[in-house]
Amino acid sequence: MLAQGIRSHRRWIVLALIALVALALAPVFLAPFHIRVAQLFLFSAALAVAWTILGGFAGYWSFGHTAFIGLGAFVAALVETSFQIKPAGLNFVVGMLAGTGACAVLAALLAYPILRLRGIYFAIAMLGVSQVLGELNNNVDAFKGSLGIVLPQIAPAHVEPQAFYYYLFLIAGVLTLGAAFAVKVTRLGHGLLAIREDEDTARMLGVPTERYKTAAFVLSAVLTGMLGIIYAHALGYITSGSVYRTDFSLNVMVYALLGGIGTLAGPILGAGIMVVLTQMVLGRLLDTHMFVTGALLVAIVMLAPRGILGYVAPLLRWRKDGASP
């Protein structure tokens, strides 16, 4: 099914490859400030794609995905600073495995009690989980959440750190998008779609709903954790407040909604628009930019409830071959 999925989405894949080449070359031409903006874009877009695996495909909106950013970041930071394995690259890999592993375990443990909750109840339960983890992290001294942790520098000495992290985010983004695409076009993705449309009917058709939801949740958590770990290294120093951030949880949904929920191109488009708007355009209107952002969102939700792609895709007639963005 993967091969068939690649065939039917070839136009989107070509578009993605062109974008990838452009993104790979971009740091050569960009000013340092713009590299930072581009980093933020890659981070935001990838987070939104990771969130989409559960929230967009299966319709299980998590309001607390920052739990995995924070958990991944802190587990990796604690492991890397405690063991200080040489060389630095290996230390990073070990931290990455520990951090993403912790996210996988947490998601698998949470799946049984809270993935049975439907709709808004699951969303709120995840919000609660992220709040609880953030508070624990901040208040239990062993986690160093309030004191903060300085992460080991992993950028090689001769490489400009901002460009280094930019490429790290780019690789993570490609991995995330690739994984999400593989889910989307295979049995798992179709099963998740059936769950989103009508979970009882899906089960009646033979979709192993609990197993599929758990798989989607764990994958989404691992990818989110991976991104959180890279983000932590790019920051260099983290506290609970810098990685357990409710605005991360909310922003990923804004990106997905803005671009087109349930699609993969949508969250990327949404993240691009929002990052450019907030960092470059509205940054000049410091007093009013939150107001303008909010108003814009209200307008889009009212005028194009399926997001920009939901509005545009039928006009492009790209969906005729069964491929959706």
Partner: peptide, 22 residues
């Protein structure tokens, strides 16, 4: 009837063929 509302007729039926009897 409990169709998958946002899917086409074809995609609804295909969902049955994709899953259903092992």
């Amino acid at each position: 009837a409990k169709p998958f509302p946002e899917l086409s007729v074809l995609d609804n039926v295909r969902m049955g063929a994709l899953f259903g009897r092992a």
